[in-house]
Design a protein around this nucleic acid. Sequence first.
DNA 1: CACAAATAGGATAAAATTATCCGAAATAAA
DNA 2: TTTATTTCGGATAATTTTATCCTATTTGTG
Lengths: 144, 144
Amino acid sequence: MFSKACEYGIKASIFIAINSYEGRRVSPKEISKEIDSPQAFTAKILQDLVRHNIINSVKGAYGGFEIDKDKIASTKLSQIVNAIDGDKVYNHCGLGLHTCDENHPCPVHDKFKTIRAELKDMLENTNLEELALDIKSGLTFLKI
Amino acid sequence: MFSKACEYGIKASIFIAINSYEGRRVSPKEISKEIDSPQAFTAKILQDLVRHNIINSVKGAYGGFEIDKDKIASTKLSQIVNAIDGDKVYNHCGLGLHTCDENHPCPVHDKFKTIRAELKDMLENTNLEELALDIKSGLTFLKI
DNA sequence: CACAAATAGGATAAAATTATCCGAAATAAA
DNA sequence: TTTATTTCGGATAATTTTATCCTATTTGTG
């Protein structure tokens, strides 16, 4: 469904959000430990999220990654996915046709339509805040 | 969603089904031309489908690939996907956790649950016959 | 200013996926 | 039985994704 990079990016964003609520910046080392991902690779993905304005980085001593507190609730899962994997989750034809639409559908176009729409809807209506709160309250987990 | 190999495998199966209704065997060359895929790679995937008993191969002159006519309607899309991509489409955690279930859910477990179930349901309730008929009647397409 | 602590970014490596090539084996027909 | 045709299967290559390493750059503190 998502690339490894995207999986790491989502989990990292959630962990950063949790810590940003407490005013704490986190490093790639802490993050990769907490989400069980390769550190250097995770750092690359964080750079990408910074470039896409999803998270914030502060260089130098006492630096690290953070998210503006008042941005957490309005950051959608779809933005993270889009930043890392692009729009192929929504737009790529299920069977890889270059053009696949109502006028020229692939054999599974119709059957995929609702599923794809629901996925899109879910990603666009899920925000970082709810995901972070579930982790904090021990309802969900970032690793294992 | 699916691997390239799986996309090719699905399209190839549909094309073979169409021709099997007419009692015609088809070669990797014809298939790859019709579904716009690399020939040798497609041949490998066909071998895989043969090993998984989804299609049938006949070696030698006048040989080729075919599907038993009376098997087409009972062959589910899920069987093809499973043969090539395994069960990860259904079972792999959305965020890559090794264990992700009701007792130990990842942050998006619940939100993915219905989507994943629908996908599974769709794949298990779509058969080769309907896909082949749609192509034959010009309703859907295998390439471009 | 010098130093320590961080992220940024380029180069490279490893692994997985996608793709190609070629000879072996099987089979039908002449 | 020979020949032409066709799948099978192993070896290899190309590409993409995943992952690592090292140096440069930035920045706060003493």
